[in-house]
Write a protein that binds this DNA or RNA. Structure first.
Lengths: 236, 236
DNA sequence: CAAGCAAGCTTGTATATACAACTATTGACC
DNA sequence: GGTCAATAGTTGTATATACAAGCTTGCTTG
């Protein structure tokens, strides 16, 4: 058997996450103090503190010396600095993730896409369109063009089971990436997929990734601006 | 006088950072263990541990239970993540830059702003509103709240001559920054300033910057999505 | 020689404690 | 009523300690 003992501070983190995500604890409301948590869970103050500390670093809580710990303003947030897997992000927020695979086929690429993928116009590339859901609400549309020379088996995957990003990472380790971030109005077909009106501003991220062999893929990620934001943290 | 006692774990972090940045400690090389550091700096193991822990979370180190702590592979500089001066960016494009200073005064801050600036609700902060122009077309509205304790002379500046960012950099060297990027619809008064319709999606960047003394300022940068984009380039 | 085990190092988790620094509230005093 | 001081509660830093868990090395043993 596997005992799989969960660390105590993780249990407390989980408890706090659930209360926030279920709406029990609203934004800006006060959460139990270190002492209250340590008594409630029968752990030392340092252990309770660790849970609060890590959730603060993750942006779920805000702490203020002397006055207490509070629920931060909540919004989906993803990090630009790291190339992250959206499924992981959503799971970290304690939310349910699933994906729908809309398209997965070879396509003839336009000149613009060809240039970005380092192919010639008229060459074929692999194309996937996957809609990502957070708690059963669509949160991001991922349209991806993949260099067929570098990832020959792309079309044989099932992207409801593994995200394109996960698969590509396993096939061709990333060496480089660029992002371009814009605010756009989504085309009608996209706004319908995302269940938003066609006047809702969207964040659109174009991400090109390289392996040592060359350009691996171009991802176009579109997400409603009122549900999704990017964040980054720099230390000098 | 102000002793400004630096926390011990910060001293150790600083020591490690300097060794990495100066090239003394190369990628993948082993850094001193918790026990070695605690002896070297005459602190407890938990304090040395905290320094290693935080640097790991910040991505400078990698730890492996049983084998040790190592310098991480350097990644990422990104122009998005660099704190750039918009005047420089525009000049680099070979375009003409100028700014209009709309507001420069002390204001009572709302609760939300107070939290972000590490002030109390109802405290006063310094506030500036500056409109940046590229070739005589408005390109970005910069609204900025500044911590008056750290930048006492902010209200005496003329931000048509020097950007707020330039001035703050000279007054309080940055040690840390966070960005949040959203796609929004600008309020009417802002869309008028930017000379766009109120249905044009805008990129909004909230940038908080720290010096060693604490939160220096919160900048809210709003720019039309069809004229302005962010980019970043990561290398692994 | 090779396999396996044990020792010793490392980081990970957890506790109990102490004091410092900051905040909000309360109550006394003017 | 307004001001000030004391107080209780909160987070921040720091120490000393203990044991668990993972890796490395070297030695023992077959």
């Amino acid at each position: 058997m596997t005992p799989v003992k969960t660390a105590k501070y993780r249990v407390i983190k989980q408890y706090i996450c659930e209360n926030i995500e279920s709406g029990q604890w609203l934004e800006h409301s006060k959460v139990p103090s270190e002492n209250e948590l340590s008594e409630q869970f029968s752990v030392s103050r340092m252990t309770a503190r660790r849970a609060l500390q890590e959730l603060t670093e993750q942006g779920l809580l805000v702490r203020s010396q002397g006055s207490g710990t509070f629920v931060a303003t909540f919004k989906s947030q993803s990090s630009l600095l790291e190339i992250r897997n959206i499924a992981d992000e959503i799971h970290e927020r304690g939310h349910q993730y699933h994906a729908e695979q809309l398209i997965l086929q070879a396509v003839d690429v336009s000149e613009e896409i060809a240039i970005l993928l380092a192919l010639k116009a008229g060459d074929t590339a692999y194309y996937s369109s996957v809609l990502h859901f957070e708690n059963n609400a669509p949160i991001q549309l991922e349209q991806r063009f993949v260099n067929p020379k570098l990832v020959a088996n792309y079309l044989k995957q099932d992207f409801t089971q593994v995200t394109p990003h996960e698969y590509l990472s396993s096939e061709a380790p990333l060496t480089e990436a660029t992002h371009e971030v814009e605010a756009v109005l989504a085309k009608d077909e996209i706004s319908q997929l995302l269940a938003i009106s066609n006047t809702t501003p969207c964040l659109q991220v174009k991400r090109r990734t390289w392996s040592s062999q060359g350009v691996v893929s171009l991802a176009i990620l579109t997400a409603p601006g009122n549900k999704y934001r990017l964040g980054s943290h720099l230390v000098f």
